[in-house]
Design a protein around this nucleic acid. Structure first.
Length: 323
DNA sequence: GAGAATGATTAGTC
DNA sequence: GACTAATCATTCTC
């Protein structure tokens, strides 16, 4: 602007010099008004003219150099950050659950469930089928959303890159800056992905807890198992506290877990103690049974009876555990 | 369907 | 950590 009038003002009167800035300002405003009234085509034409100007390459390189020296970078992008531990944890969980990575086989899913529930891995019940079906749904949704995010990220990145490349013709934008912007976009999208991973993990956890609750449904032990447990209980009425080894042994015999054996003995002790008279008949029956078993063993092998078998009459167990 | 029986869970104690 | 006592939730029996 000053190039227009700079030299022509020399030698003009003081009065004129005072008025000159106001006149320049007026012209400037006028030009701005004209620019805003330009059509798109006119603006493009001006832009083209500017790009074709013989001084443009020189001025542009000077601008780039100034920008480089004065560190007038758009945004300083931090170097590669260390992988987020929470994201790693989520990734591992999704991998372990078979949501991410290769799909788990039916047997692998059943085994994982059995490990979580303490049940049998061979139990391919309808509950397992339900669990697998729900897990497959979660997996499908997760991958669909992940693909969407990746596609959106790629589209947005290429759009921004194109814009920046286009703009780099008229303003100094270094490839490093473009790279930095791409990195920012990727970080934003990976934050969204992180949310997706988190909600997927939550969905799996809810599914698991629901499944585990369903597993809590009580199922009576087999008659044979109850008989084995009762036999031990009434044979050891004076001290109905099986050791860990015995619990394991009984658990094996009854095809239940040692924890279930503990529960059973806990319940049995309490209920027996609360109502001895009610259990008297049962106690007598097992006492006779044990005695018969013992006598048959002695007659067969001439060996002594087991330490506890029949040693204490069933009715001798009192709430205090005393004889 | 009601009540009893039974396996599991939980809070408190030692 | 094992155990007791109370309680819950489900299954069994009538």
């Amino acid at each position: 602007m000053s190039g227009h009038n700079g030299h022509s003002h020399e030698g003009v009167s003081d009065h004129h010099n005072v008025d000159q800035p106001q006149q320049d300002m007026g012209e400037l405003l006028q030009q701005i008004m004209v620019i805003t009234e330009d059509s798109l085509d006119e603006a493009q034409a001006r832009k083209h003219a500017l790009n074709c100007h013989k001084l443009k390459p020189a001025l542009f390189s000077v601008l780039c150099a100034i920008k480089e020296k004065t560190a007038l970078r758009v945004r300083d992008v931090p170097e590669e950050e260390p992988p987020d531990t929470q994201e790693l944890r989520l990734d591992n969980m999704l991998l372990a659950e078979g949501v991410a990575g290769p799909e788990k086989s039916r047997s692998a899913t059943a085994a994982a469930l059995a490990a979580a529930t303490g049940g049998s891995s061979s139990d391919d019940s309808s509950e397992h089928a339900d669990y697998r079906e729900k897990l497959a749904q979660i997996r499908m949704i997760y991958h669909t959303e992940l693909d969407k995010y990746e596609q959106a990220c790629n589209e947005f990145t290429s759009h921004v890159m194109n814009l920046l490349r286009e703009q780099s013709r008229t303003r100094p934008i270094s490839p490093k800056e473009i790279e930095g912007m791409v990195s920012i976009i990727h970080r934003k999208f990976s934050a969204i992905q992180m949310q997706l991973k988190q909600s997927t993990c939550e969905a799996v956890m809810i599914l698991r807890s629901r499944f585990l609750d369903a597993r809590r449904k009580r199922r009576n032990f087999s008659k044979q198992a109850t008989e084995i447990l009762n036999e031990y209980f009434y044979s050891n009425l004076a001290n109905p506290y099986p050791s860990e080894e015995t619990k394991e042994e009984l658990a094996k015999k009854c095809s239940i877990t040692a924890a279930q054996v503990s529960n059973w003995f806990g319940n049995k002790r309490i209920r027996y103690k609360k109502n001895i008279t009610k259990f008297q008949e049962e106690a007598n029956m097992y006492a006779i049974k044990t005695a018969l078993d013992a006598s048959s063993h002695t007659s067969q092998a001439s060996s002594p009876a087991t330490p506890n078998s029949g040693e204490y009459p069933a009715s001798c167990y009192t709430p205090d555990g005393m004889l």
